[in-house]
Design a protein around this nucleic acid. Structure first.
Lengths: 123, 123
DNA sequence: TCGATTGTTCAATAAACATTGAACATAAGG
DNA sequence: CCTTATGTTCAATGTTTATTGAACAATCGA
């Protein structure tokens, strides 16, 4: 449980994997929270996300985020710190991360729109 | 086989579903091809994508793209025409589609980078 | 009306995915 | 040293996914 896990290089980061990774609500929430925090400190510890799911499930999601190149994990004693790979992502996919984060922010504001209906206009 | 299938309204378009939809290589290729073409004509017929996969599989992917709000299907005789819902996407997720398309374009150029290695530096 | 074309539907299949809990590993601190 | 806190690993589970091929439906044109 002690060595730094492997990370893809910048050039190995692939668009479909990144999009797939961001398409899971829990992972999107992790990335979002990480981004929110960024001004304060660039990293958070895994435990800071315990609200989102169980620990072993979070380990699973962190691994996906790491494997696709969205974040970097740093080991420090019994803790693991994670941070967004902003520069690498910006270099590979300019504007993408911010577009996703802005959209996610807007959605987070929405009063959870429950409309089941289609384009049907009261017919 | 003749009625127009249901589409989500603009407000019903959800970020995670869109990202998930774009994370499949076939669907990304469809969207990309549609975008490339856009200047010439805003729509293509389903058959124009037959190179990407079998017909029934394409039907499946078109349905996903339609259901998540990425494209719109129009029925015309025995043909179906599809087009990107650019305006709706731009309204919901500003900058997102273009960021994805630009990134996809860059990747399409890459000489298919096969490097299996990690950040390992010849150790 | 017949035949060809376009695309859908359905059932089957194999693979990938998210989630869980229990057991484990590592390190820090009394 | 022993205990506690962090987080991982592993196996089990049920779900969703992409892909296939065969059968079907609708329309167009000769």
């Amino acid at each position: 449980m002690s060595r730094t896990p492997p990370h893809p290089t910048r050039e190995q980061i692939e668009l479909p994997l990144v999009l797939d990774c961001l398409s899971d609500p829990i992972r999107l929430a992790i990335v979002y929270q990480l981004a929110q925090q960024e001004a304060v400190s660039s990293e958070l510890c895994c435990g800071d996300f315990n609200g989102l799911s169980g620990k072993s499930n979070l380990t699973y999601h962190f691994a996906k985020l790491r494997d696709c190149g969205l974040m970097r994990t740093r080991v420090a004693g019994t803790n693991r710190f994670v941070r967004l790979r902003r520069e690498d992502l910006e270099a590979r996919f300019p504007g993408l991360l911010d577009a996703v984060l802005n959209s996610a922010a807007k959605d987070a504001d929405r009063p959870q729109l429950v409309a089941e209906c289609d384009e049907v206009k009261a017919d």
